[in-house]
Amino acid sequence: MKDTDIKRLLYTHLLCIFSIILSVFIPSLFLENFSILETHLTWLCICSGFVTAVNLVLYLVVKPNTSSKRSSLSHKGTRFLKCCIYFLTSCFSFHVIFILYGAPLIELALETFLFALILSAFTTVPCLCLLGPNLKAWLRVFSRNGVTSIWENSLQITTISSFVGAWLGALPIPLDWERPWQVWPISCTLGATFGYVAGLVISPLWIYWNRKQLTYKNN
């Protein structure tokens, strides 16, 4: 039972990674002069779109949480609207946090916002898919002994690793290497992406290795 779950987790994660790889290669078929560094903002939008889409599709197909009691159309509609509001709120709050962390206030506002967008796609979208617009559940998942399934456990790991990646991405900015990727926010977005991918890879493995120790309340 558990092993099949882990397998499903692994496959979904591989699909997510695949979507990120696709977001690097597919646009170059349609757009001229596309490259991650030079047309970075385009890639940011495309990548966050891909990741969001794949997450949504996977959520609809796999249905990791089966706790949706009411399924009326209006309920679904309000739920969807709420999700959208949550997503936008998270984008804006990330933006504000970046500025508090030292991002330029007025210049490069679009870049900062797109970075917030992609970070939201990596963190908020999976949360919304898995937990729904329910802040209480989110806070529960991100605290000690709060996870109740391997899905939530992997969510925890990928989210934290995305944040850590974004944080680490900010470190090389002041260095005088004069590389094109040291420009704000490229190193941070790349860091976040690598962190997300690393989280996607690590979490099934970590869960697999610790499957003996892991006991969830619901299982």
């Binding site: 508090l100 962390y101 030292g102 802040l135 209480k136 806070l139 529960r140 991100f142 605290s143 000690r144 944080w167 900010a170 002041p174």
Partner: peptide
């Protein structure tokens, strides 16, 4: 510029740690 960044990281780390240890739950206002 690096020091405020580190200080901010420290602050957020402290908040997250408080939350992680369960000292912040349940957040009434949120």
């Amino acid at each position: 510029r690096a020091t405020p960044f580190l200080l901010g990281s420290f602050v957020l780390l402290l908040v997250v740690q408080l939350h992680w240890e369960g000292q912040l739950l349940p957040p009434k206002l949120l």
